[in-house]
Amino acid sequence: MAPPIVSPSPIESTNPWTTLSTREGYSNPWIRVREDQVINPGGGRGIYGVVEYKNRAVGVVPIDDNGYTWLVGQWRYCHERYEWEIPEGGCPPGEEPAECARRELLEEAGIHAAIIEPLLLGVQLSNSTTNEVCDIFVARGLTFGDATPEETEQLEVKRIPLTEAIQMAQDGRIRDSVSILALLKLALKS
């Protein structure tokens, strides 16, 4: 039996913020930073800084017929540490997220996927200072070729049991939020 459809309450459908003005502080090909003059829900005046992402984030978990997956390791500049993640990338406007997932999987891991299935769509990666959202997919029907990472990527790729990748997400060896969301969602489905 399907759950009942619940209409949003008036408080859920009414924006309590008033934007008085917007000023762009910075822009590059990937992000735009803006500062809004606002009236907050309590009636006070203030500022709200927002980082707008120009691309949609996309992640993909490749799974083979034997229950293995592939992780990508790389140095993450902002966090100043090496991280293990599922293959991920940015989906520019005009590209379908599923096709972006297919492209990123090939670029980063050298894997062709016959099937790309949605796992999580429209996930908000931070709801306080950015508008970044992510779509996450599962890839199946895998064949293999050569990875072609971008100039900004120095990657290591490793094949491990999916159960081990899930354990890494649970015990903190994987810290990337997109990877954790994807792997824990897959753990719930099994």
Rank of each mutant, 00 (worst) to 15 (best):
N15W: 10
N28E: 14
V50K: 00
E151I: 07
T148V: 06
S126D: 15
E99G: 01
G46W: 02
I39P: 02
P29S: 11
S27Q: 13
I160S: 03
G94A: 00
V33D: 15
L71P: 13
A139L: 03
R140L: 02
W17L: 13
G46V: 05
P161C: 07
R32W: 05
F137R: 02
D146R: 00
R159A: 04
T69P: 05
I86L: 13
T148G: 02
S126N: 15
G59N: 03
G43H: 07
G67A: 06
A182K: 06
G67Q: 13
M168C: 04
L184Q: 14
E95F: 01
L181G: 05
A101P: 09
I180Q: 12
L106H: 06
L125K: 09
Q154R: 00
D135A: 06
P16L: 10
N55R: 01
I180C: 09
L188P: 01
L188H: 07
Y26W: 14
P29Q: 05
P118D: 12
T14R: 07
E12L: 06
L184V: 09
F137Y: 15
W17V: 14
D135I: 04
M168T: 09
V60W: 00
A147Q: 05
T152F: 04
V51F: 00
S128K: 06
P93V: 01
G67E: 14
I180T: 13
F137D: 12
